[in-house]
C-alpha cells in the first residue's frame, strides 16, 4: 500500500508540475479579464469557471501552482542551508556556541509557526509591489524555518563527530577542511535532503494560511493562498462548489509531496 501510495502521489505531482509548467503556453492568461463572463460557472471555455473579475480560474490555479512549486522548494533550500550552517557549527564546536544556538532553536520551535510568521511579517511593509510581496513571503518562510532542521543537523553532526571512522580520520592527521568536506558533508546530505522535503509542504500550507489572512502574495499576482482567500467571501458551500477547486488542488499537491517522501514504515 505504501509503495502504491508513493507511486500514485509521485505520479500526480509530476502531472501537476507538468500542468503548471505547461500553463506558460496556456491560451488564456491568469490576469486576462473577460467582462462578459463575471463569476461564470464551469463551461468548455472556462473549465473551473471565472472569478468576480472575470479571470479564468483554471489558468489562475495553474499559475498559483507554478509559483508554489517554484518558491516553496526555494524557501526550503534556504531553510535547509541555514539549518546546516547553524546546526553544523553548533554540533562541531559544542560548548557555549551549541547552547546559544540550541536556545535560539528552542525559542523558534516553541513559538507557533503561523504566529511567528505574521509577527515578523507585520514588521515589514504591507503595501509593497506584488513581486516584492512574493519575495518577502517566501524569504520569511525560508529564514524562519531553520530551527527544527538545525536541531536534527546538529544531532547528526555530533553523531558523525563521535563516530569511529571520523576519530580515525582525525587521528590520521586529516585537516579540518578535508574532514568537513570529505567526511562530514556527504554524511549530512541524506538528513538535509529529508529536512528539505519536510519543509516543502509546510511552506506551501503556510503560504496558503498567510494568503487567506491577507498577509501573503499580493494581487494581481496569483498564489494558491491568495486564491483560497476567495472562499472567505462565500456564505455557502452549495451555491458555487467549483470555487473549492483551488483549495482542492492545494490539499492534493501538499498531500502528494507528503506521501511521495514517506518511508515504508512512516505512513
Amino acid at each position: 500500500m505504501t509503495a502504491a501510495l508513493q507511486r500514485a502521489a509521485a505520479g500526480i505531482l509530476i502531472l501537476l508540475a507538468l500542468a503548471a509548467v505547461g500553463s506558460l503556453w496556456f491560451p488564456v492568461s491568469a490576469s486576462a479579464q473577460s467582462r462578459n463572463a463575471i463569476d461564470a460557472a464551469p463551461s468548455m471555455r472556462y473549465p473551473l469557471g471565472t472569478d468576480e473579475l472575470g479571470r479564468d480560474r483554471l489558468a489562475r490555479v495553474l499559475c498559483g501552482l507554478r509559483l508554489s512549486f517554484l518558491l516553496a522548494p526555494a524557501a526550503a533550500c534556504l531553510s535547509t542551508a541555514l539549518a546546516a550552517l547553524i546546526g553544523g557549527i553548533a554540533g562541531w564546536y559544542g560548548g557555549a556556541i551549541e547552547r546559544i544556538a540550541m536556545a535560539a532553536a528552542d525559542l523558534f520551535v516553541s513559538l507557533p509557526w503561523l504566529f511567528l510568521l505574521i509577527t515578523v511579517r507585520a514588521v515589514l511593509p504591507l503595501n509593497v509591489s506584488p513581486l516584492v510581496s512574493i519575495g518577502v513571503t517566501f524569504l520569511l518562510l525560508g529564514m524562519l524555518g531553520w530551527a527544527a532542521p538545525a536541531r536534527v543537523a546538529r544531532a547528526r553532526v555530533r553523531a558523525i563527530a563521535g563516530s569511529d571512522y571520523f576519530l580515525q580520520a582525525r587521528a590520521a592527521g586529516t585537516g579540518g577542511v578535508r574532514l568537513f568536506l570529505r567526511h562530514l558533508l556527504p554524511n549530512l546530505g541524506p538528513i538535509l535532503a529529508a529536512q528539505f522535503w519536510i519543509c516543502v509542504p509546510v511552506y506551501i500550507i503556510s503560504e496558503a494560511n498567510l494568503g487567506l489572512l491577507g498577509l501573503g502574495v499580493a494581487d494581481p499576482l496569483v498564489s494558491l493562498g491568495g486564491m483560497v482567500r476567495e472562499l472567505s467571501s462565500e456564505s455557502s458551500l452549495m451555491t458555487r462548489p467549483w470555487i473549492l477547486a483551488p483549495a482542492g488542488v492545494l490539499v492534493m499537491a501538499t498531500a502528494c509531496v507528503h506521501f511521495a517522501r514517506l518511508k515504508k514504515e512512516e505512513v
Binding site: T2, N209, L212, V228, V251, A255, F259
Partner: peptide, 21 residues
C-alpha cells in the same frame, strides 16, 4: 495513515472555512 496525511495537508484556515459553512 493516508487519512492523517490528508489532514496534515489541509491548511487550518481552509478547514475552519469548511466548518463554518
Amino acid at each position: 495513515g493516508p487519512g492523517n496525511g490528508l489532514l496534515l495537508a489541509a491548511p487550518p484556515a481552509v478547514v475552519a472555512l469548511l466548518f463554518l459553512w
